[in-house]
Every structure is written in structure tokens, then in C-alpha cells.
């Protein structure tokens, strides 16, 4: 199935819902790893919106990306509670372990605030990290 066909399917699936754009963008991001300019055009046409409107939404939210990134992602929480538990001291080692192979992303709060520092890989959460455990996570992702 071509990308265009798949996009039309996703759009059709959500079109009858109230406020269909966000669910569509989530599905597109999950399936293609990004919402690129082509996808924006097709979604805009499908929902009778301007491309600018769709691009405005895609670019507003941290979860949507305009370009694909094949690297695995490790999200590290760097909000106050994790800072108070020492996450900043782990960052240099984490960056070294990640190198160019893994993408480290900052997230503000995974809601595990009494057992930080915390990280998320896909839908898996990891708590009580120290430098070694975080490095191991990054190396094996």
C-alpha cells in the first residue's frame, strides 16, 4: 500500500470524530515516525483545512516531528523532582553513552516523582536510575 493510501485510511478512520486532527497526527507519527510536508498536505486536503493550519499544529507539539529520525529514543526526565534527585549529574555520562547512535530527549515529568531519576523508552518506564543503569539502558536500546 502506498503512503498516500495509508494516510487516506487513517484520515477516514477518524474523520467522523469531533476534533479529528490530533488523533490522526498521533497515528501518522506512530506509523511513519514523522508528519512530513507530504502528509500535512494530504491531511489538510482530507479535513478541508489549509496546509498552514495543519503545519501550525504539527509544529506546536513536542510529540510530532517534521522529519523522520531512525535512531532509538531514550527520554530522560529533567524536571524539578528528578533534578532534586540528581538527574543532572547523569547527563554527561548519558550523552557519552548515547553518542550518535541513540537520541536522548528531555521530557518534563513522567509522573514517577519520588523514585527518580526516570527514563522512558517506548512505553516502558524506568525508575531509580543511577549512572550505570542509565548507561546500560542507553547502550542496549
Amino acid at each position: 500500500m502506498s503512503k498516500e493510501q495509508r494516510l487516506s485510511e487513517i484520515i477516514a478512520e477518524h474523520q467522523s470524530r469531533e476534533g479529528p486532527l490530533m488523533p490522526i497526527l498521533h497515528d501518522v507519527q506512530a506509523e511513519f515516525g514523522c508528519v512530513d510536508a507530504d502528509s500535512e498536505r494530504i491531511i489538510a486536503a482530507g479535513l478541508n483545512l489549509s496546509r498552514a493550519e495543519v503545519h501550525g499544529v504539527v509544529s506546536f507539539y513536542h510529540d510530532f516531528h517534521g522529519e523522520p529520525d531512525a535512531r532509538p529514543v531514550v527520554q530522560i526526565c529533567r524536571a524539578e523532582a528528578c533534578k532534586s534527585r540528581g538527574v543532572e549529574a547523569l547527563i554527561a555520562d548519558a550523552e557519552a553513552a548515547a553518542g550518535t547512535r541513540v537520541k536522548l530527549a528531555t521530557v518534563y515529568c513522567l509522573g514517577l516523582c519520588s523514585v527518580g531519576p526516570n527514563a522512558r523508552i517506548g512505553d516502558d518506564l524506568h525508575a531509580r536510575l543511577d549512572s550505570d543503569r542509565l548507561k546500560k539502558l542507553i547502550e542496549t536500546v
Binding site: 476534533g19 490530533m22 488523533p23 497526527l25 501550525g56 499544529v57 507539539y61 513536542h62 510529540d63
Partner: peptide
Amino acid sequence: RVGAGAYVCGEETSLLNSLEGKRGE
């Protein structure tokens, strides 16, 4: 309905915009 990583969408009017499929302003 799932958010998309914007802290400001916890503000109620921004949340409503996001639900409607708009920028969470």
C-alpha cells in the same frame, strides 16, 4: 484523547483548543 507533550495544554482553554485539533494556545 491523548495530548502531545505540551505542558501548557493543562491550562483549560489551551486544552480545549488542543481537543478541537488546534495549536494548544
